[in-house]
């Protein structure tokens, strides 16, 4: 079918019903845009879905927050990309929840019958923090984890040829591995 205004092939169909009468207009993309009917051509389906979900999903609040600040594409702690998460459905580390908070909101609501906030049990340490009391005693030791994280940072520093940083990291690791080193006259 040809465009109502020119010789091009019509790709946009506009149907208006006025006073009970149905008015059909067939336009090519160019003319449609000139008339303000096709704002954007060929929006990919995935984008449309994301926009739809973000705009109309139950997570209206989270979605408008996402609209204001552009959502993060990478978790600063573990470097997981949002796109990778969508592929494997697994987050990389606890900090991913903060990094991707705005994108996760609508997803979580769909997965949890509209639930968006935790209302269940909390660890006693977290409860103590919230109650404004003095934090409960720290756990036995997170030293091993800290060392593992530093080792990973060290590997990265070496690969990136940041030798000063690598040396500093190595010292930190040594100190954590053998705190006795630091004790004078011991």
């Amino acid at each position: 079918m040809k465009c109502d205004r020119c010789e091009n092939e019509a790709t946009v169909q506009e149907i208006t019903i006025r006073d009970g009468a149905r008015i059909e207009t067939h336009l090519c993309e160019q003319c449609a845009r000139q008339m303000g009917l096709a704002s954007q051509s060929a929006v990919p389906l995935s984008e449309l879905l994301t926009k739809y979900v973000l705009a109309t999903g139950i997570g209206g609040a989270a979605a408008s927050a996402a609209g204001r600040a552009s959502p993060a594409t990478e978790c600063p702690t573990c470097r997981l990309m949002w796109s990778e998460f969508r592929r494997v459905d697994r987050l990389g580390c606890p900090d991913c929840y903060t990094a991707f908070e705005s994108q996760l909101g609508p997803l979580l609501e769909r997965a949890h019958e509209g639930g968006s906030r935790h209302i269940g049990k909390s660890p006693s340490r977290a409860s103590a923090r919230r109650a404004g009391t003095k934090e409960a005693a720290p756990p036995a030791d997170d030293r091993v984890l800290r060392i593992a994280t530093l080792r990973k940072q060290l590997e990265r520093a070496v690969v990136e040829e940041q030798y000063e940083r690598a040396a500093a990291l190595r010292d930190q690791i040594r100190q954590l591995e053998d705190p006795a080193d630091d004790r004078p006259g011991d």
Partner: peptide
């Protein structure tokens, strides 16, 4: 565990 990547994302050392 806080401050540690989830098992699939961490290194063997983690």
């Amino acid at each position: 565990l806080a401050g540690c990547p989830f098992p699939h994302r961490g290194s063997r050392v983690h």
